[in-house]
């Protein structure tokens, strides 16, 4: 069970890092007297995002849901946060590298191009969304239900299992078969007894074995 004091401490740290992120996004353009200042600010900002990612994952690992092995449920519930945080982190690093590269010689010059401006807009918009989703997740993880077994949890797990449809899994399975078959066809003609039996044929025996195995699996599954 999550202790209140521990949770308060972690939440404070997360909000501190979020505040720093917001501050740098807002005022980094003003603090560009020397390129080093901006460089340090950007590095700390990226580290702060990374720390936030580590903290949120540690919080995930601490939940009963994760410890019970229901990672899928956890991912389903917080996939927005995970994806958005990753996207924002990538956008931030890209923008920081680009801007610092342009401003390193002279920090007080006009460096904007259309590409940089577009990246800037997307990075700042992602920052707002990241802030919202991250804050929401951090607050939601304070819910004691994530740290104990309950019928609610079981119900949620059933819903998640239902929402990921079977045809999607089947489609993935078929895609694997098709991909494997195509690869085999690139190097050989169609399956022939010589190729299958002969180890020195153009198609490698390992590839043939995998292909036959997948087709057999598919046959048993779909009754053909």
């Amino acid at each position: 069970m999550l202790q209140t004091s521990n949770y308060s401490l972690v939440l404070s740290l997360q909000f501190l890092l979020l505040s720093y992120d917001l501050f740098v996004n807002s005022f980094s353009e003003l603090l560009r007297k020397a390129p080093v200042i901006q460089l340090v600010l950007f590095i700390i900002q990226d580290i702060a995002i990374l720390f936030n990612i580590i903290i949120i994952f540690l919080m995930f690992f601490n939940t009963f849901v994760f410890q019970a092995g229901l990672v899928n449920l956890l991912f389903h519930k917080f996939k927005g946060t995970i994806v958005l945080t990753a996207v924002y982190f990538a956008l931030s690093i890209s923008f920081h590298v680009w801007v610092m590269n342009l401003r390193w010689q002279n920090s007080n010059r006009f460096v904007w191009t259309d590409g940089l401006h577009t990246l800037f807009v997307f990075q700042r918009l992602a920052a707002v969304l990241y802030c919202y989703f991250y804050k929401r997740t951090a607050v939601r993880l304070g819910d004691p239900r994530f740290y104990q077994d309950s019928l609610w949890l079981r119900n949620e797990f059933t819903q998640v299992q239902r929402s990921s449809p079977q045809f999607l899994k089947d489609a993935m399975f078929c895609a694997q078969i098709v991909l494997c078959t195509c690869r085999c066809q690139c190097t050989a003609t169609w399956l022939s007894p010589q190729n299958i039996c002969g180890p020195s044929g153009p198609m490698s025996s390992g590839c043939v074995c995998v292909c036959v195995y997948l087709i057999c699996c598919c046959g048993t599954k779909y009754k053909f």
């Binding site: 209140t4 939440l11 304070g142």
Partner: peptide, 14 residues
């Protein structure tokens, strides 16, 4: 502990 749970902390912050 009984009076102040993690839910309360989260609610206060929110």
């Amino acid at each position: 502990k009984l009076s102040w749970t993690t839910r309360d902390v989260a609610l206060t912050v929110h």
